[in-house]
Design a protein around this nucleic acid. Structure first.
Lengths: 189, 189
DNA sequence: CTCTTACACTAGCGCTTGCTTGGTTACTCA
DNA sequence: TGAGTAACCAAGCAAGCGCTAGTGTAAGAG
């Protein structure tokens, strides 16, 4: 709700700590120290610890949606290019905003029901983009299989990259995206 | 180390709770109650909470390795069949021993360094099976791409199934496995 | 009939947790 | 100049945490 610049910065720091330590192991005292304030002052910005988590996830998902929409807007319209665009956008988002997304992926269950209900709308909107692109690729005969399963598998493969991919290595996120797309569409070289 | 039947049963119950609540949120009192004993008695079976986690993960990974090896043993030897066999074995393990594997996948970071070192050998042995099968498929020209990336993508897609797959639904784990293999090898229907 | 072993219990210690309270400081704007 | 407000702090409470110490009991081994 509130979006003061101070709160945004605190959210960014919280995301980092949540990734490093996990939500449960991150204490309000650790959060406060990282932010350069005392633990009590934290509750001036956030109603409770839960709300910090929700803020982190909301911020991340919001960005992902924005980046993907913009990327599709400027993408060529043929199904293969759009598939590649979505894969690239997904990984771009995943690694520029890494902390927030890792939290969204692995600490989702820690949200209370209210926050989950609110945030799952955002997430569904994002997944809808994927389903749309994959449907087009299926109809064009570019890939084959069940639309539901294909999108789950692709998203799974992409999301799992946060567990092993090292941005400092020789491969760029775009390399990964292209490799994945190349893997699921029949070769034509 | 120790493997009394009592301890094995306790490990199974612990896995269930760890999945339900997460490792950090699961208290020794909750564990004890689920086991029908008092919290103090728990430490007769396990040195500390960490050791329970390690026992859960060890048990699961051990089973996965056993099942995969046995499946490969009885599999036809052509690369496509072996790929399908590994995918099926992976999902079979993932869903018969679901709790243990979810814990292994998502609570790994909670292990102390010593346990990590010990258990990562087991995990590496399992991944080696995958690399071997995927190498054969690449050499046979069945799939294309980088061996490292392909195996990461495939494992990612498979592991991610625990986040969305409902065993009570219409699809069997074998269906999923076949669909995934069908997705990455060029169609020939 | 004793000794050992496995398993469980009661009681609680020492510490950390999320969060509250009551007050202070610095800045903005009429 | 004075009122209002956003940001912070010091102090600490109540609850819950992992784990320990010491004891009891029943079953099997010698």
């Amino acid at each position: 709700m509130n979006a003061s610049p101070r709160r945004k910065e605190l959210t960014r720091l919280a995301a980092q700590l949540f990734v490093q330590e996990g939500f449960d192991k991150t204490t309000v005292r650790m959060l406060a120290q990282e932010m350069g304030i005392k633990s009590g002052s934290l509750f001036h910005h956030f109603k409770d610890k839960q709300e910090i988590l929700a803020a982190v996830i909301e911020e991340g998902t919001h960005n992902a949606l924005r980046i993907a929409r913009r990327a599709l807007e400027y993408s060529p319209t043929d199904p293969e290019a759009r598939l590649r665009t979505m894969a690239r956008a997904h990984l771009e988002t995943l690694f520029t905003d890494r902390n927030a997304h890792v939290v969204a992926l692995f600490e989702w269950r820690r949200l209370d029901d209210e926050a989950k209900a609110h945030l799952s709308h955002l997430r569904d909107a994002y997944e809808a983009l994927w389903v749309e692109v994959i449907d087009a690729a299926l109809e064009a005969g570019l890939i084959h299989g069940d639309r539901f399963l294909v999108s789950r598998f692709v998203l799974g493969a992409l999301n799992w990259t946060v567990r092993w991919y090292d941005p400092a290595g020789p491969r760029t996120p775009d390399d990964l995206a292209d490799e994945l797309v190349g893997m699921i569409i029949p070769a034509k070289r």
